[in-house]
Design a protein around this nucleic acid. Structure first.
Lengths: 187, 187
DNA sequence: AAAAAAGTGTGATCAGGATCACACAAATGT
DNA sequence: ACATTTGTGTGATCCTGATCACACTTTTTT
């Protein structure tokens, strides 16, 4: 069954023994829709691997407006990494949008894993690289694309998400008002 | 004197022996202003550590407009990582804006280093993490800030760069026309 | 030293998208 | 089943920042 093992083994192979050890660093948590996994101001103690469900991570500005940094569905990692790696209070909120299961670990866990298993440091590096590249693509998209293009690109990259997530949040993610987004396909 | 060693040792300590070995994976290259380090379509064979000088890395859209992904000054790493990690043709240009010296290495070099020296994998991971966090901050800024705020933020983050780089490129980096940027302080 | 290229400031006009306002629809809670 | 909350479509208006145009300055090239 083990979803964690499958996930890790997409990148690096593990012996049974290794996996038994690795596993002890993660804890399962069930989360219901509309629960916060983390709020601004909380110490960013954990990072999360989403096993099921959907989350959004966002910055809340002075006027109370959400700006969505990322959505996270199955097999996505998620954390306010700026806060997490420095063990500081989070500046981002993480909110559950559909009943979910997550595995979480701590920075200490991550560091111990990385130190004990070169493979795991490699795994984390690869994951981070993919995230970095995805963000870079998003920056290009924000700088050069019209709302139209950004919406289409989003649909291509995340066909699963575009169906399950209310359009108003997709608008926030794309940096466009929900009215403008609405007019892209109806108008 | 070794600038590479100093740079690495900001993150991880190295013995003389280790450093002698690490060093062999890097090559020095001098670049003059207006030379390309990489053009769209080139195989993204190398990644670069800037020892001196300034570069910009940008995406050129269909209308011939530049969209600047990042500037790179001293001690910045730079590559079209999407292309580099997959050893594909680059989609980004890297252009020298002030006479420079860079060290470059290959993906194979990076991988060998990471495999042979756990410390170096750690080093690369830390560097990548910092880059990831910086990009995340930039996305928030693009989503939620006015041109004014983004300009000020840029100035705070990169006080050295804001002086040395022509405003028109800063405008492109911020995703704003040069005219609008100009009016932010003069108007 | 002269010529060309690159960068900057500033006005006038235009347009894409934000905002405001409202009606209706769908999902959720009790 | 009903009430409340959450999401969606669409019109009318407004405004920020893009675009166009041109003068001037600074840097680079020859």
């Amino acid at each position: 069954m083990d979803r964690l093992r499958n996930h890790i083994e997409e990148i690096v192979g593990l012996t049974d023994l290794e996996y038994e050890n690795v596993k002890t660093f993660f804890t399962l948590r069930r989360v219901k829709k509309n629960q916060y996994l983390q709020q601004e101001g909380d110490l960013a103690k954990y990072e999360f691997l989403v096993l099921s469900g959907i989350f959004r991570m966002f910055y809340l500005d002075e006027e109370g407006k959400e700006h969505i940094i990322q959505f996270a569905g199955q097999n996505w990692w998620m954390a306010d990494y700026q806060a997490y790696f420095n063990q500081k209070p989070a500046t981002l909120h993480i909110l559950c949008m559909a009943d979910a299961e997550v595995l979480y670990t701590t920075l200490e866990g991550r560091q111990t894993l990385s130190a004990n298993f070169h493979k795991m440091e490699h795994f984390f590096r690869v994951k981070l690289t993919n995230g970095y590249v995805a963000q870079q693509r998003r920056i290009v998209s924000l700088l050069s694309g019209t709302p139209q293009q950004r919406y289409e690109e989003f649909g291509q990259l995340y066909p699963q998400l575009i169906q399950k997530i209310p359009k108003k949040y997709i608008a926030e993610y794309l940096g466009v008002s929900r009215e403008t987004l609405s007019r892209l396909y109806s108008g």
